[in-house]
Write a protein that binds this DNA or RNA. Structure first.
Length: 584
RNA sequence: GGUCCCGUAGCUCAGCAGGAUAGAGCACCAGAUUCCUAAUCUGGGGGUCAGAGGUUCGAAUCCUCUCGGGACCGCCA
């Protein structure tokens, strides 16, 4: 049950019949109108701008249409009153009976409450993390991993059939450098004197371990032979090791992918050649010269013929190279092949989560997806901005050279997985995020993770204490669902129920916008509302949840607290954070 | 040079695909509090939504320009 959706279809139905009566046929579906929680409670529970939206196409004055609509709506079983206000807003008040049944429904549905049918029957592929397998994950990768993972959870809650995918960039220059860096550590492990790490290689000490393992496995076998002999073996081994590191980090974060696709395996299967051939057939490929980028002078620029993709035909500024001037494939080419692979596996709807530094790449990739799917597929890219780490308000400078390199695992170790996951979603993914490691350890209301978890713990505490006060009462959800819910009226409990009833709408709109941070914002709002309720009990005994003189009242209020717990737990489940029951 | 993003309270940011008096947290000011977990709470001040035009019943939101900040810009991924 979703009151907003119910009202929407009711209003659409009414408008349809009105348009028939007026003899002005309109496509109701193609108009978008709002149905939202009233910001000001004096205006009722829910407001809509429907009358203003439909006034124009129906050629009728907004207030006239609004007056007619209010009359119609008042006939509905759940609607207490409907009034027209301002330029033509409808303010709707819902009957208390409805809130009773809504509360009951939350208790019956439990963790399922908030599920939506928005995405039923729709497959989505969401690709995230996709860090180069050249070392352990840093905090920025972690943000992408969490945003992707929570977005996947969110879309699942909204009914989509979600596949979580990781693209392994195990080909190309970076991997060459990795292999050479590992070879260097291998030599070192076999006793070669090292003064400093050669220019251009990865200096990270985490590679020493990989070098040692190679030395144990192969001894001095690779020392005196030609590079062409050792390179393939060491490459493969190094990638496997690095991927192992990344998977370990992901496990620490609680992030699990279903599919790992290797770039190298796509290349080996000639997927790139195939996709280029496909584009050639579509006449979207030609050999040409690119203009020199203006303003950014480089000494060694010279025009060279390259194989180019006509991305400008799909809204990109210029065409983009598929092959380097030496004839080898660009990363773009293999990325196109990869997205075509996803499309051929049955995914029309694809989402990629990237770092914000790849922004310039978005348009060409979208162009490519249009081309390779014949406009049957869509790619949507969510970008994640930087994470700045702080300790006691002071920025933690991260410098690989100075050896101060804070990895994701370090941060998880310092504050815990749940805190990392939650904090990463306290900003919209496009905004840079300041993450203060000392602040999130505080047990105070300044710490949003604590604030939300504490609200949940308090609801659990209410149930524990109620059970102690009334040992003979059964307080499981099915009993609570049958409580006499009118008894919450004298503590203004409906206000809380109304807020909880927004949960399905929050899930839907966050899923539509692909903005997982909205879940966290909503959780904070519920937590705040619940704490406010709680505190009222400190000022006035009659507002307490447990009323020793009345088992019936207590059961009704415990039901309310339990519903709060269900919604918070359900939101935390999407975020991937444990809902703790006690915080002593 | 070009493309894109951003500019909302002193600070950090929300603002749901144009809607009613622009919100929250921190900070500030004034009060409350032997509590079902006070690991606080209530109230208050504070805004020309960078600026100027435009679109319309209605703009923080859409369009144009100006100013300010940032990111990216062939053979890296």
């Amino acid at each position: 049950m979703n009151i907003y959706n119910d009202l929407e279809s009711l209003i659409k139905k009414k408008i349809k019949s009105k348009s028939k009566d007026l003899g002005i046929p309109i496509e109701v579906k193609s108009y978008r109108f709002n149905i939202e929680r009233s910001k000001n409670p004096d205006r009722g529970d829910i407001s809509t701008n429907a009358a203003m939206v439909f006034a124009k196409p129906l050629n009728i004055k907004p207030r006239l249409l609004g007056e007619w609509l209010t009359k119609e709506l008042k006939c509905s079983a759940h609607i207490q009153s409907a009034e027209i206000a301002g330029p033509g807003f409808l303010n709707i008040r819902i009957k208390n009976d409805f809130w009773h049944s809504a509360l009951k429904e939350i208790l019956i549905e439990g963790p399922e409450y908030g599920k939506s049918e928005l995405g039923i029957g729709k497959k989505v592929n969401i690709e995230y993390v996709s860090a180069n397998p050249t070392g352990p994950m840093h905090v920025g990768h972690g943000r992408g991993a969490i945003v992707g993972d929570v977005l996947a959870n969110l879309l699942e809650k909204a009914g989509f059939d979600v596949t979580r995918e990781f693209y392994i960039n195990d080909a190309g220059k970076q991997i060459d450098i990795l292999a050479h860096s590992v070879f260097f550590r291998y030599q070192q492990a076999l006793g070669k004197e090292i003064s400093n790490i050669p220019e251009g290689l990865y200096p990270g000490e985490y590679l020493m371990d990989t070098g040692k393992k190679l030395a144990e496995m192969y001894g001095g076998k690779w020392l005196e032979v030609d590079k062409s002999k050792w390179l393939p073996t060491i490459k493969e081994f190094a990638v496997k090791e690095m991927l192992g590191l990344i998977r370990k980090d992901l496990e620490l974060l609680g992030v699990k992918h279903k599919i790992f696709t290797s770039e190298k395996s796509l290349i080996d299967a000639f997927a790139i050649d195939e996709v280029i051939e496909y584009l050639e057939q579509q006449n979207l490929v030609y050999t040409g010269l690119l203009e020199e980028p203006k303003g950014k002078k480089s000494k060694d620029w010279e025009k060279r013929p390259q194989l180019l993709f006509r991305s400008s035909k799909f809204g990109d500024e210029c065409d983009r190279p598929l092959k380097k001037s030496d004839g080898t494939n660009t990363y773009f080419a293999s990325d196109i092949a990869y997205h075509r692979d996803k499309y051929l596996r049955g995914f029309n709807k694809m989402i990629d989560v990237w770092g914000a530094d790849h922004k310039g790449y978005v348009r060409r990739m979208e162009a490519a997806v249009s081309a390779i799917t014949g406009d049957n597929g869509t790619l949507e890219v969510r970008l994640c901005n930087l994470v700045n780490l702080f300790e006691d308000g002071e920025p933690i400078k991260m410098s690989k050279r100075a050896g101060r390199f804070v990895t994701l695992a370090d941060v998880i170790d310092a504050v815990g997985k749940d805190v990392v996951r939650f904090i990463m979603l306290t900003r919209s993914n496009e905004a840079t995020l300041d993450f203060d490691l000392s602040k999130v350890k505080e047990q105070s209301k300044d710490n949003p993770v604590f604030y939300v978890q504490y609200a949940h713990a308090r609801t659990c505490s209410v149930i524990r204490n109620a059970a102690e006060t009334f040992p003979y009462l059964s307080l499981d959800d099915s009993r609570l669902a049958n409580a006499d819910q009118k008894l919450i009226v004298d503590m203004d409990g409906y206000e809380l129920v109304k807020l909880l009833c927004n949960w399905p709408k929050v899930v839907e709109s966050a899923a539509l916008a692909q903005e997982p941070h909205r879940i966290v914002f909503f959780l904070s709002e519920i937590a705040s509302a619940f704490h406010t309720f709680w505190n009222r009990g400190n000022e006035d005994e009659s507002y307490k949840f447990i009323i020793p003189s009345s088992a019936e009242k207590t059961v009704a209020r415990v039901a309310l607290a339990r519903a709060v717990a269900i919604v918070i737990a359900s939101g935390l489940a999407i975020v991937g954070v444990e809902a703790v029951e006690e915080m002593r």
